Simulated assay, not measured.
Amino acid sequence: MLSSTWPVTGIVLLACVLGVLGIHTYARGTADRAALVARLAQSGEAQDTGRRRRRFRSLDRRLRRTAFGRKLDLRISATGLDVTPGEFVAAMTVLVLALWIAGQAVLSPFFGPICGLVGIWVALGFLNWQRQKRIEKFINQLPELSRILANATQAGLALRMALSMAADELDAPAGDELEKVAQQLAVGTSIDDALGELAERLPSRELVVLVTTLVLANKAGGTVVSSLRNLTETLEERKETRREVRTQLSQVNLTAYAVPVIGIGSLLLIDNMQPGALDRMTGSGLGQVAVVAAFALYVVGFVIIRRFSKIDV
């Protein structure tokens, strides 16, 4: 008779996947709605109703006073998600508690804290994945951004006006990020500070080169048009090179994620073949040390494979 471990495990994993997809869909829908309301408000067809009502405001205020909260807020703003640090920490806490309880019920009480740590890793990994995906989209738009700035500068527009025009013409995420830069410039922020904050939100070599070119041109003047046109060609070549490298390393990246999945699957297989085996294994100190060492080795293997597959272009 088959154990009930597999159905429970499948339900828990399905709930986690659906939860992550639900948060992602909700955030994208909220961002699309905000963009639609903004366009309608500009055309006079509708009034901007503002942002949605925030939850966990007290927790959000406490987090923003800490260094961790400020770093978390900067990272969330780079993802483009309409989520506050307080809401993210609350959702991560619920995920950790759910995985903790599921690990204790499905495997053994010893695996509860380990599953809780996995929940923290999943939440932060989702945030990094959204941030990296947005950075990639922004990098792909940099050649067009450089081309627009070169044309606007050649037409005699100041750099502030060129950035504002690029914010209106480009789609998200470049349009949204340049809109923030334009708003900062409108309230008196210097170009150096506004562009420097943009490079800090979306760190990449391509953006750093573009920001450095614009800052130097703004300070010293010179042939900014020719510099931007040369930069446009360079960014186009780097875009193609990055795409080829990412395609070549796709199998290696898949292997990095397959290694820990195989380890977890082996534990579930052992518990299914011999019910109660995990309880007996983690009932002694030696078994607990062996499990922790095994998980640590899987983490080390994951990190090493990811390091080998990371090629800076």
Rank of each mutant, 00 (worst) to 15 (best):
M1Y: 06
S3C: 04
S4C: 01
G10E: 01
G10I: 03
Y26A: 08
A35V: 09
R39T: 04
R39F: 02
L40I: 06
Q42I: 07
S43A: 14
G44N: 05
G44S: 03
R57Y: 05
R61Y: 07
R61F: 06
R62I: 08
L63P: 05
R65Y: 07
R65G: 09
R65I: 04
T66S: 13
A67C: 01
R70S: 12
L72Y: 15
G80Q: 10
L81E: 09
P85A: 03
A90M: 13
M92S: 15
M92V: 10
M92R: 14
V94G: 13
V94S: 12
V96N: 04
L97F: 11
A98Q: 07
W100T: 15
I101T: 10
A105E: 01
V106P: 11
S108W: 11
F110T: 11
F110S: 09
G112P: 14
G116H: 09
G116P: 12
L117K: 00
V118N: 03
W121M: 10
W121A: 10
A123I: 13
G125T: 07
L127K: 03
R131K: 06
K133L: 09
K137Q: 15
I139S: 10
P143F: 15
E144M: 14
L149I: 12
L149N: 10
A152F: 15
T153G: 12
A155F: 03
M161Q: 14
L163V: 14
M165L: 14
A172M: 07
P173S: 04
E177W: 03
E179S: 15
Q184F: 02
L185H: 01
V187A: 08
S190P: 14
D192L: 03
A194W: 00
E197N: 05
E197F: 01
E197A: 08
L198S: 10
L198D: 04
E200C: 00
L202S: 12
P203Y: 05
R205L: 15
V209D: 15
V211L: 06
V211F: 00
T212G: 04
L216D: 05
A220W: 11
G221A: 07
V224K: 06
V224T: 11
S226N: 09
S227G: 02
S227I: 05
R229A: 00
L231Y: 11
T232C: 06
L235P: 08
E237S: 12
V245S: 05
T247P: 02
Q248N: 02
L249M: 11
Q251W: 01
V252M: 09
T255A: 14
A256H: 01
A256T: 04
V259K: 00
P260Y: 03
G263N: 06
M273F: 02
G276S: 01
A277E: 01
D279F: 04
T282Q: 02
T282E: 00
S284A: 00
G287L: 05
V289S: 13
A290T: 13
A290D: 11
V292N: 00
A293Y: 12
A293P: 09
Y298D: 04
V300G: 00
I305V: 07
F308S: 08
I311C: 03
